[in-house]
């Protein structure tokens, strides 16, 4: 994913264009973290130290900060935007969303997620890709984790390269990790290469480990 940035008349504000629709209609403006609660994207951006205001438009995200220097902040903002879109969530929580938001999977974690999701996520973090020597969660190899509410978990995952000799072991590791969570009795792991994995799917932690700048993929 490539995120373009645009300067505005206010040097403290930058516009980020993620190359996709942000809001279907209208705009969203939050000047505090609490006011951003309705928007998982804005909420995540307030997690970046120094961010004081987030405005969402049709295809752009306006971010205002007080630290003065964008050089250090920009990578963190880009990383937060990227991570948000990787979760597959919308910019705003739709009212009456049928899915329980607290069980939505995110590699970087969500403050509102259920204890089971946290347990599964942290257990998956124990599973490393043997070649890269880094955990498969932060590498972005886990595309989704979902629960059926009756003790069943489903993990959708990929490998860095199709046909990877470690595939079966990685799938088995993810399955064991899911089963280790309280209340999970059965776990199913599905492998996909659609979309194909790329370094842009890594979390900020993995990117920092490999020295990959935020916002860059292959």
């Amino acid at each position: 994913m490539f995120i373009e940035t645009q300067a505005t008349s206010d040097p403290a504000t930058l516009k980020f264009l993620p190359g996709r629709q942000v809001l279907a209609s209208g705009s969203f403006d939050a000047s505090t973290r609490e006011a951003a609660a309705q928007s998982p994207l804005a909420h995540r951006l307030f997690g970046v130290e120094g961010v004081t205001r987030v405005v969402l438009g049709s295809d752009w995200i306006g971010v205002t900060q007080t630290r003065g220097d964008w050089a250090h902040l920009k990578p963190a903002v880009l990383g937060a935007i990227m991570e948000h879109y990787l979760t597959g969530a919308g910019a705003l929580e739709a009212p009456g969303d049928a899915e329980t938001p607290k069980d939505r999977f995110s590699a970087v974690g969500d403050p509102n997620e259920s204890a089971t999701m946290t347990q599964v996520r942290e257990a998956i973090r124990q599973v490393i890709d043997p070649e890269l020597g880094f955990n498969i969660l932060d590498l972005g190899l886990i595309y989704d984790v979902s629960f059926d509410g009756e003790g069943g978990a489903k993990v959708l995952m990929t490998t860095t390269t199709p046909g990877c000799p470690a595939t079966n072991y990685l799938m088995s590791g993810a399955r064991e990790a899911a089963l280790s969570a309280d209340g999970i009795e059965t776990a199913e792991v599905e492998l996909t290469h659609d979309p194909r994995w790329g370094p842009e799917m890594m979390t900020s932690i993995a990117k920092a480990h490999f020295g990959i700048p935020e916002g860059e993929g292959w």
């Binding site: 124990q126 072991y169 088995s172």
Partner: peptide, 12 residues
């Protein structure tokens, strides 16, 4: 490989 997910493992 066989114990991945059950315990921390060394890296290659």
């Amino acid at each position: 490989g066989p114990v991945m997910g059950r315990m921390p493992t060394p890296r290659v």
